[in-house]
């Protein structure tokens, strides 16, 4: 089985986010990046399929030089090879542009299964998986919590209230996975050493035959600005020493009559 795993590198969950001067996105300078948490579960699932049988697992990411770090981490965890779409003409694509880039990579590789996270922790769009499936003429499922089978795949997807919807999917398929579907491994020292010899294939937009079709100039959706949400009925903030804070909280808790 050939498995493509799509990874996005996003600002670290605890990174301080500052809006850049043009207001349209965050300042990326001096921000620590990490692999999107949702995508780590997708990679782990691919590696588990590989551990259980035969699979060629390759990872794909789009972005500038910093993305090499994410790909090296993925190779260290056990992916066999990587494709890095590194081209300023690919950056700032919208969800559909991103899906077109990934579709071009997938068409050249013909994977049986494409795994990725349900959404990215930066733009929270949750769109690329189903879009990619449409562009490939493949089936798809989102919020996937479990994958079983080798021919047709039985997947469990998380719906509301903790319920699960079970569906059977024909291959090829795109699975956008939910967090918590597995426990993600760390790259071992041995894995990190082995990763240094694994290939990273660098591609440009032109290599993929997408010149003029993706990137900032081709977006159908434009972020005009991002901003700190207006403060609503914000909490009354309790300040002071720990003792003072605790005294205030105890008084309030007594008032509520729950003691």
């Amino acid at each position: 089985m050939k498995i493509m795993v799509c990874l996005k590198q996003v600002p670290h969950q605890d990174a301080r986010l500052d809006v850049r001067p043009d207001g349209a996105w965050i300042q990326e300078e001096n921000v620590k990046f990490e692999i999107n948490a949702y995508d780590t579960y997708a990679l782990e699932e691919a590696l588990r399929i590989k551990d259980a049988g035969e699979a060629d697992v390759f990872v794909v990411s789009i972005g500038p030089d910093r993305v090499t770090q994410a790909l090296r981490t993925a190779l260290g965890m056990g992916a066999d090879r990587a494709v890095h779409v590194k081209d300023p003409a690919a950056d700032a694509s919208d969800a559909l542009g991103t899906a077109k880039i990934l579709a071009a990579v997938a068409k050249a590789e013909s994977p049986d299964v494409v795994l990725m996270g349900l959404m990215a922790d930066d733009d929270n769009f949750a769109a690329v998986g189903p879009m990619l499936a449409e562009l490939l003429g493949a089936s798809h499922a989102t919020a996937v919590m479990k994958v079983e089978g080798t021919d047709a795949l039985t997947v469990e997807r998380e719906i509301e209230g903790g319920a699960l919807e079970v569906a059977e999917l024909q291959k090829p398929c795109v699975l956008a996975v939910q967090t918590g579907m597995n426990q993600v491994r760390y790259a071992s020292l041995k894995g990190i050493m082995a990763a240094k010899k694994k290939p990273i294939d660098v591609k440009t937009v032109e290599d993929l035959g997408l010149s003029g079709q993706v990137g900032a100039e081709s977006v159908k959706v434009k972020v005009e600005k991002i901003y700190v949400p207006p403060k609503g009925d914000k909490a009354d903030m309790v300040t002071g020493s720990t003792d003072e804070i605790v005294a205030t909280l105890v008084t309030k808790i007594k008032e509520l009559g729950v003691l």
């Binding site: 769109a127 690329v128 998986g129 189903p130 879009m131 990619l132 499922a141 989102t142 509301e160 959706v221």
Partner: peptide
Amino acid sequence: HTPIGWDIAPRLAAGLDVGFLSD
């Protein structure tokens, strides 16, 4: 933006080659 909405809306947008906004 429900498990059905987020599942098919982006797919339809890609099929139509139009803009998509989520949630």
